[in-house]
Design a protein around this nucleic acid. Sequence first.
DNA 1: TCATTTTGTTCAGTATAGCGAACGATGGGG
DNA 2: CCCCATCGTTCGCTATACTGAACAAAATGA
Lengths: 186, 186
Amino acid sequence: MRRSESEAIETISIALRHHRERAGVSLSELAKRAGVAKSTLSQLESGEGNPGVETLWALAVALNVPFSRLVEPPTPSTRVIRAGRAPRLRAEHSAFAAGLLSSSPAGASRDIYEIALEADESREAEPHQAGTVEHLVVVSGRMRSGPTASPVELDPGDYTTFSGAVPHLYRSVGGPATAVLIMEHS
Amino acid sequence: MRRSESEAIETISIALRHHRERAGVSLSELAKRAGVAKSTLSQLESGEGNPGVETLWALAVALNVPFSRLVEPPTPSTRVIRAGRAPRLRAEHSAFAAGLLSSSPAGASRDIYEIALEADESREAEPHQAGTVEHLVVVSGRMRSGPTASPVELDPGDYTTFSGAVPHLYRSVGGPATAVLIMEHS
DNA sequence: TCATTTTGTTCAGTATAGCGAACGATGGGG
DNA sequence: CCCCATCGTTCGCTATACTGAACAAAATGA
C-alpha cells in the first residue's frame, strides 16, 4: 500500500481539520495541547502519512472527542412514524409487537425499535451474537426487563442497557406497556 | 515510548485477540489475509508497539469488524437510569433539561438523550455539524419538533428523525412533555 | 516412529512517523 | 515605519513500526 490514499487516512485528515476548526483552535495551539509536533499535525491534516494510534489518541483527547469520531463518516433526512405505525416485524408471538423505527446502513449497525406488550405478557429473547448491546426506554406502563438472570423493574421514562449476548426478557407488569429499544450489533 | 500501558494500546491488543479468536482464525492466517507480517500482529496482540492506522485498518477489514471496535473498550454491562435521573447537561435554558443516557461506545458516534420540556416551552437549537442526524421519540405530552422550517406535531410514542445540520426546535404543546433523543454525529 | 505442516515468537534490517528547528507569511501594536 | 507575535509549512535527524527469515513447540499424518 505504497502511495495509496488510504480511505482511512482521507477521512482522518478531514475529520481532524473539521473538529479543530469547529473548536476554533489553531493548528499550532492544538499541537501544543496534544503534545505532538506542529509538523506532524500539519502533515496529517494535509492527508500525508500514516499516524500511529498514540498520536491520534492524543489529538482526540485534546479535541475532547471520542476516538471513533476521527475515523467514521455521515447519514440522511426527515421522516415521521406515528405511534404504533412502524413497519411490523414478526408478530408471531401474540402479545409482542415490534416496530422498526430506524435501521442503520451497513457497517455500524444500529436498529431502533418500538415495542409493545399486552397486559402482563412476557417475551423471552434468545441470545444474539456477541457484541450486541440493547438500550431500552419505557414509554408507558411498567416493565420488567434485562438479562433473564437479573431483570430490573422499569417505569415510564426509565432507561436500561444490557448485553444482548445473553438470554433476556421483556415483560409488562400490571398492564400493557410500550418502549423504545435501540439495538447495536458488532 | 517503550511504555506499554498506553490505555489505547491496551484495549487494542485485547480487542484484537478477542475478535480473532471469535472468528476462529489463527494468528498466521489473519496476518496473511490482512497483508501484515505475523511478527507485527504477534507484537500487537502482546500489547507492544504503537500501530499505525493503515495496519489497524487492514486488520479490521480482514476481521470484518468496524474500525472503532478495535479502539474503543468493550460495551459496558447492565445499567439503569431512572426517569429524570440521567446526568444533567448544561441546563442553562430554564425550561429545557437533557439527560445523557448513553454516549456512543462504538461505531458511528451516537448519543442518547432524555429531554424534558415544561408546559408550553420551546427550545431553539443551533445547527450542529454537517452529517448530524437526530432521532426523537416522545414519551409523554405533546410536542412540536423538527427543523424550524417544517416542524411536526408529535404525540406520545411518535417518532421522528431529521437532520441536525439545520436550525431545529423542541416545543411542548398543551402541557409538559418528555422524549428520548438519539443524536448521531459524523 | 519420524517427517511435515502450522502454530506463535524473536531478531536484524529498513522504511517512515514523529520531532525540533528552521522558514516565509500575516497581523497587530508601538 | 519596524517589531514581535503567531500562523502553517518544509527540512534533517532520530526513534521506531513494520518486514522477512529463522526459530522452537505443537499438531498432523503415514
